[in-house]
Structure formats: C-alpha cells, structure tokens
C-alpha cells in the first residue's frame, strides 16, 4: 500500500425502490446512478448527494406510474459512505470478510471492518456503505489496520462513479 493515502467520506444519494420484481427488472437506468439490486423486490440507486432530489423524482415517476403502491424512499440518511480509491485495494481485502469480486463494476454485501456493509466497486474506487448509526466506527477501524508508518487522510467528496 502507498505511504500516503486518502479515503473519502462521500456525500451520496441512496434511493431505495421497493416494488415488484418485474417493475424493477424493467426499470431504465437513471442518469448518473448505479442501480444495485438488493433483493428481488428491492433496488438501491446510488448517486451523488447533490442529485438526490432529481434521482428520487425520476425513480418515483417511473415506478409509481406502473405500481402506485410501491415505495420509493430517500434513504440517503441511513447510510455512511466511504470511498476507497483503487490504489487501496489491499485495504478493502484486509477488511472484507467476503472476497471482493474481480469484475467491474461489482456489488456485494457482507461484513467490512466488522460492520454490515454494501460495497460498490467501479473502475477506480470501492464505495463502502455502512448503516449511518455505526458509520463513526468505519474510519477508525480503517485507521487501525492502516500501517502506523504511513499516513491516512480522510477527505470529503461527493460520490462520483468511474466506468
């Protein structure tokens, strides 16, 4: 791992779509977002925090037109998002009980740093989502496994994706 490294606390939009599988299957992509399929009847749209309102409106418009009883909720406040640039891939390997997939993009759920997490990996970074009530643990635990000889910075940045 490099001797000086920066990870980011990311301002992210997390929109949860609870609808029937057929509606989610057919849902078109929303610009600037990744859609992570959590379950057959649940999809999570991830995007930049600044686009939260737009993503929510777009998702609601599409889903409610087909399934008025579906739930489309802004769950951004429920998640703490930390972005680890790809140069720190070994860091994620050290912290993740589930083996990070090799394909890109990739999405998986499992324990990271002892916390329940969802991880989205794009071409240049891994975005780790943990429940916001325990988010304060994630960065301290990352520091614990970081080499004491090196420097780890934590910055703030909007969530962006790299294809």
């Amino acid at each position: 791992m490099p001797s000086r490294f920066t990870i980011f606390r990311s301002d992210a939009a997390v929109i949860a779509c609870h609808a029937s599988p057929r509606v989610l299957d057919a849902m078109p992509g929303v610009s600037g977002t990744y859609a992570a399929r959590i379950a057959a009847d649940e999809s999570m749209l991830l995007g930049s925090g600044a686009s939260r309102g737009a993503i929510l409106r777009s998702a609601r418009e599409y889903i409610s037109a087909i399934e008025p009883d579906a739930l489309v909720l802004d769950q951004s406040d429920a998640w703490w998002v930390t972005t680890i640039p790809d140069a720190g891939r070994q860091l994620l390997n050290r912290l993740s009980v589930v083996r990070p997939p090799d394909e890109r993009p990739a999405f998986y759920q499992g324990i990271v740093a002892g916390l329940p997490a969802k991880v989205l990996i794009d071409a240049r970074a891994a975005h780790v989502l943990v429940p916001s009530p325990v988010g304060h643990h994630l960065e301290s635990r990352i520091r614990d496994v970081w080499s004491a000889d090196d420097t780890l910075d934590i910055g703030l940045a909007p969530l962006t994706f790299n294809d």
Binding site: A16, A19, A70, L71, L73, D74, Q75, D77
Partner: peptide
C-alpha cells in the same frame, strides 16, 4: 402478501 416493507429506522 403483496406488500412492500422498508426499514426507515436510520433514515428517520
């Protein structure tokens, strides 16, 4: 049951 269930404990 045709229901949608969302845990909003942390978001709310």
């Amino acid at each position: 049951s045709t229901v949608h269930i969302a845990n909003v404990t942390a978001a709310t």
